[in-house]
Design a protein around this nucleic acid. Structure first.
Lengths: 209, 209
DNA sequence: GAAGTCAGTGAACATGCGTACACTCAGATT
DNA sequence: AATCTGAGTGTACGCATGTTCACTGACTTC
């Protein structure tokens, strides 16, 4: 029993912790996480300022937790997308689709990452850069197995992987900035992303040949 | 005489104004302009907080002035670079060189733009986006005259122009983040930029053909 | 040389901040 | 049933902030 009934308290604590993280994400949408105060977060989470410390040592630690949560969300989405059969039929169209839809679903997380990547505290910034670097390396492994690319040098593959991730980040930024319910703008961004990827892929085929 | 001698006062005012802008730029390097306070700026500029209001109505107005100054610096650099004969021999190598060197020279301005582009106040952010959009259009005009591109649709040219500007922004961000006096890193960024541009140009040649 | 202008001063204010501390009292442990 | 634990409370503090107001005095204008 000691372990089974002993849940309710942990569960409540976890709920509050998540409320704090959600509050930070929501408040950050307006002016950026870096300018949100501890008191604002606590207020919005329906908790007294001092209670914040039961969950995070500082705002920086909250920021790091948000980085972690954001990237795990992103990775989960990509993993799910890879199971989609459409992905293998037309990889470019599918990637553009997945990108825009994923960002729309977890706008707050993407907004957090894209803003704090450059505007956040040094600690949060470093964490995001590290995650993005990991991402580039992961994508490089996938790319290295594609035709046209398998003979490239490691450096070249990394470079092209960076190019893709960069464009992914930029496109995500655009979707984040996009006003809600504007299907026309959304389609425009998707179309732009498709064209950019197609152009880069065309470059692949002739690289150093 | 009324106009000739009446300079010293304006000149002094202009000097203070510039001191305030320099202070904001310097302080912003650490944690981003958006989190710099009016009092910090005034202190760093060697002036009492209230004197700030003689030059700017608010921090947002200061931000807009910095956006303007940053982009006029950037445009001047590009104009000068276009006079360089090397530019016409190998446009890609020259562009990579100019990019890295320009950013190094006015690091503070580029850092300001790249951070506040996403992290700043809505007003400053909008101003930067507008300037960057102008930039994309300007570059599109130049690109439209290149071989391989002259037959493209306007939309396609805009798209490829966005691709270039995006990469310029990303590379500038990297140079800004780069520690000083690291010639190796610098060369690495330049080489990365060259490869990316070459890859994109290769795509040009086969686009829709 | 008198009068006026206005960049910069200095004191004062209300407000919001991060954090320390002693507390309560539901829920877990014994 | 008695005890303990720790998530959340409430008060209090010193400090930095944006903005106000009346001011000074060098430089410009007349």
């Amino acid at each position: 029993m000691t372990e089974l009934v002993g849940e309710s308290r942990q569960v409540q604590k976890e709920r509050t912790r998540q409320a704090i993280m959600d509050a930070a994400l929501a408040l950050g949408q307006q002016h950026g996480f870096a300018q949100v105060s501890l008191r604002q977060v606590a207020r919005h989470a329906g908790v007294v300022p001092t209670a914040f410390y039961r969950h995070f040592e500082s705002m920086d630690e909250l920021g790091l937790a948000l980085v972690e949560q954001s990237f795990s969300t992103l990775r989960r989405m990509i993993r799910e997308a890879q199971r989609d059969p459409q992905m293998f039929e037309n990889i470019i169209d599918a990637a553009a689709e997945v990108l825009v839809e994923s960002v729309k679903v977890s706008k707050a997380h993407f907004a957090f990452v894209s803003r704090e990547r450059v505007g956040g505290s040094p600690i949060v910034r470093r964490a995001i850069r590290h995650e993005l670097d990991l991402f580039v390396s992961e994508l490089a492994v996938v790319l290295a197995r594609l035709p046209n690319i398998e003979s490239w040098s490691t450096d070249d593959v990394q470079m092209v992987s960076r190019l893709f991730v960069r464009n992914m980040v930029s496109n995500a930024e655009e979707v984040v900035e996009m006003p809600d319910h504007r299907a026309d703008l959304e389609e425009r961004i998707k179309e732009g992303a498709r064209r950019q990827m197609r152009l880069i892929v065309l470059g692949f085929e002739r690289w150093k040949s």
